[in-house]
Design a protein around this nucleic acid. Structure first.
Lengths: 146, 146
DNA sequence: ATAATAAAAGACTAATTAGTATTTTATATA
DNA sequence: TATATAAAATACTAATTAGTCTTTTATTAT
C-alpha cells in the first residue's frame, strides 16, 4: 500500500514535528540513525520534501532539517502524495479495476471504512495535531532502544 | 500490501470456485480475459498453485484449471501465502520495526482491527464459503462488462 | 581566509516485482 | 495414430522500487 520511501518519509517528518524547530535541526544522519532508516535514502527523501515546501532545511554547520510553524500546519497526506503520488490510497485492495460502493470487490466493505479512518488521521489532522496525539497516546516512531 | 500476483491469484481462484468443477474447466486464456489479467502471468501463477495443491488442472483438449471439492475447503490465505510468502500481513503499516500492541505506531490502533477483519475473511472462511458469500452479497471479481 | 559541516544535486547499482515468450509434455478426439 | 489443445517448465525482458555513492554548494565558526 505505502512504499518504503513514504513510510520512511512520514516517520521522519513526525520525528521532526516532535523534536525540531527553527533553532533545533537534525541532520539526515541523525534522523536515519534515530529511526533506523538508511541514511542516504532518508536524505534524498527529505530533500524532495524540502523542494515541495513540506520540510525546511539549512546547509552548513548547525544546519539540518526541521519543521517550521507553517510546515506543521500541513497534513501528513501531503507527504504521502509527494512521495508516492496522488493515488496512493485509491487502488482496490484486490486489484479490481473500477471497484467501488456500487461494484464492490469481496473485501471492499472492510477496506473502505479502513481507508476512511486512515484519511481522518492523515488528511483531516495537521502534522502538528497528529504529532501531539502521538505524544499523548504514547505511540512510537522508532523502537531503536526498546 | 498485496502484490499484483497475489491479487490476481485470489481473484482467479475465487472465479474458479464460483464457475468451475471437475467437469467444467477454464484455460488460463479464458480466465485472463474474463478477469482482465495478463494471460501469461495468470497461467504461471495458477501453475504454481497447482503445484502447491491449491488448484487442480488437466492438460490437453477440454483441459484447464478448476477447483476440486478438496481445493474448495482451503482458505484464501493459503493462496496469499503461497504467492507472497508467509508474512504478507505481518509488517507494520508505517514500517516501524517491532510495532505491536505494546509499542504501537501512530496507526496501529486503526490497522490492527482491519487486519483482524481481513483475517476473518481470508483465514477463518473456506474458499467455498467465501465464494458463496460473494454470490449472495453481489460482490464482483471482474467488472469487465459493467 | 579557511576548515569543517551538512544539504543539494545527480549519477549510479541492486533487488524485487511484473510481465512475456518459447519449448516440452500430456491428453482428448477425430 | 495424427492433430489440436492446453498445462508445465523454463528462460527471458521490462519496469519499478530500494538503496548507495560522489561531487557541488552554502554556511558557520575558528
Amino acid at each position: 500500500m505505502l512504499s518504503n520511501a513514504s513510510k520512511y518519509a512520514v516517520r521522519a517528518v513526525l520525528f521532526l514535528a516532535d523534536k525540531s524547530d527553527a533553532s533545533t535541526k537534525y541532520s539526515a544522519k541523525a534522523i536515519g540513525e534515530e529511526l533506523e532508516i538508511p541514511v542516504y535514502f532518508i536524505a534524498k527523501l527529505l530533500q524532495q520534501l524540502v523542494k515541495a515546501g513540506l520540510v525546511s532545511s539549512s546547509k552548513g554547520p548547525k544546519g539540518g532539517f526541521y519543521l517550521s510553524e507553517e510546515n506543521l500546519q500541513n497534513n501528513a497526506c501531503k507527504i504521502l502524495h509527494e512521495i508516492d503520488g496522488e493515488d496512493v490510497f485509491s487502488h482496490c485492495f484486490m486489484g479490481l479495476p473500477r471497484c467501488g460502493d456500487k461494484n464492490p470487490c469481496p473485501v471492499h466493505h472492510i477496506v473502505s471504512p479502513f481507508k476512511d479512518k486512515l484519511m481522518a488521521k492523515f488528511q483531516k489532522q495537521s502534522i502538528k495535531e497528529l504529532s501531539d496525539e502521538i505524544d499523548e497516546k504514547g505511540m512510537y516512531l522508532s523502537l531503536k532502544d526498546s
